[in-house]
Simulated assay, not measured.
Amino acid sequence: MSPVKYNFIFLYLIPLLLFFSCQKKEKTYIETVALNDVQLTKAKPGDWRYSRDEPFQTFEDFQKLDKIKPEPGKNTIYLQPIGEFNELQKKEIERTRDYLSTYFQLSTKVLPVLPNTIFPKMARRIFKDGQEQILAGYVLENILIKRKPKDGVVLMGITEKDLFPRPEWNYVFGQASYKDGVGVTSMYRFSNGNLSESNFNESLERLIKISSHEIGHMFGISHCLNANCVMNGTNSLSETDFHFARACSLCQQKLNSTLRYDQKKRLTALKHFFEKQHLNAELSRTEQDLNLLK
């Protein structure tokens, strides 16, 4: 080939190379919503992170775990109410079902209520404040594991009684056996044992945070050290209230790698839930994520 032809080809290629080099690589969904992650504040005495040195779980760490995951014929989340629930408490459980179905993008069903008589005397105690408490481990091992439906990937118990994990502990919001895919949480502390119309939304927000947190653990996600996130560890109601119901970008990446849902469809459904329930702070955060995707 003559030098003239070589020059012609070279001059032709330069604009093409410049064109492709100037094209920005399109950001992934996770890279996009990461812009809305809020950095964790320094832990204070009494906070979960203050006295614990937990390892940071990377996405690669998460992928290596042997964890439960939905599969054909075993892909439903079940809620098991245990206790004597009034109409407002029943409404809170139904709203929680709606939320978990949206958050995890999995079919979520409420099982028939079990009575408090299912708890034997050895699994009960009267706390110093006067309320009856139930041993959380008994609920997991002697009730939930034995009753988990065959098509259930997760079974989450919800009690109206307060819970305690062992004699030396005052109380616990929830407890789970991650390898068995069962957990339990109590509604009691979320409304100080007295759910009303005035504190309904506050109690509901706490319940959806704790239940989605525990189920997130069942799917292999450790306590989050990446950003303010529903998967942050919590020691108190004030710490629970401070944490977002929103999963940070890293925890969303972990969750979606297992559940494989449509990210934008999920965000849109979450927006509708928060809008309907007037949970305005979470609605705003969801809208901010959606705005980044436009």
Rank of each mutant, 00 (worst) to 15 (best):
residue 73 G to E: 02
residue 65 L to V: 03
residue 254 K to F: 09
residue 218 M to P: 06
residue 93 I to V: 14
residue 58 T to S: 10
residue 73 G to N: 08
residue 49 R to H: 13
residue 153 V to E: 08
residue 170 N to F: 13
residue 8 F to M: 15
residue 55 P to F: 01
residue 43 A to K: 00
residue 7 N to E: 12
residue 233 G to T: 04
residue 227 A to W: 13
residue 164 F to T: 08
residue 11 L to R: 11
residue 253 Q to M: 12
residue 17 L to Y: 03
residue 75 N to G: 11
residue 138 Y to V: 04
residue 39 Q to A: 15
residue 173 F to T: 04
residue 30 I to K: 08
residue 156 M to R: 01
residue 146 K to L: 13
residue 36 N to E: 15
residue 185 T to A: 15
residue 56 F to N: 00
residue 88 L to R: 02
residue 243 H to M: 14
residue 279 L to E: 10
residue 212 S to N: 08
residue 277 Q to M: 14
residue 153 V to W: 14
residue 54 E to R: 01
residue 96 T to W: 14
residue 33 V to E: 10
residue 294 K to L: 06
residue 233 G to E: 00
residue 28 T to F: 01
residue 171 Y to G: 12
residue 101 S to F: 01
residue 249 S to D: 02
residue 129 D to H: 02
residue 279 L to W: 04
residue 162 D to A: 14
residue 135 L to V: 02
residue 140 L to V: 00
residue 42 K to Q: 13
residue 188 Y to Q: 09
residue 254 K to R: 04
residue 224 C to P: 09
residue 209 K to E: 13
residue 189 R to T: 06
residue 272 H to Y: 11
residue 284 S to Q: 10
residue 123 A to F: 01
residue 226 N to C: 05
residue 47 D to L: 00
residue 230 V to G: 15
residue 181 G to Q: 06
residue 101 S to L: 07
residue 50 Y to E: 05
residue 46 G to S: 07
residue 67 K to M: 04
residue 211 S to V: 03
residue 25 K to S: 14
residue 112 P to L: 13
residue 109 K to E: 13
residue 189 R to I: 05
residue 141 E to K: 10
residue 230 V to F: 10
residue 178 Y to A: 05
residue 214 E to G: 14
residue 155 L to Y: 07
residue 131 Q to K: 08
residue 64 K to L: 05
residue 154 V to M: 10
residue 144 L to P: 14
residue 109 K to W: 09
residue 201 N to Y: 04
residue 88 L to I: 02
residue 184 V to G: 06
residue 58 T to L: 06
residue 120 P to N: 00
residue 57 Q to T: 07
residue 87 E to N: 09
residue 263 Q to C: 10
residue 160 E to V: 03
residue 233 G to H: 02
residue 110 V to D: 02
residue 163 L to K: 09
residue 94 E to L: 08
residue 233 G to S: 03
residue 10 F to S: 12
residue 242 F to I: 03
residue 6 Y to T: 12
residue 174 G to K: 05
residue 34 A to G: 06
residue 129 D to K: 06
residue 95 R to I: 00
residue 33 V to T: 07
residue 27 K to C: 02
residue 97 R to Y: 06
residue 71 E to N: 07
residue 202 E to V: 11
residue 271 K to D: 14
residue 238 S to V: 08
residue 156 M to P: 03
residue 231 M to I: 09
residue 285 R to A: 11
residue 277 Q to A: 05
residue 38 V to C: 02
residue 244 F to T: 12
residue 16 L to E: 01
residue 5 K to C: 10
residue 185 T to F: 15
residue 187 M to Q: 13
residue 60 E to V: 04
residue 280 N to W: 01
residue 52 R to M: 09
residue 239 E to Q: 15
residue 44 K to C: 06
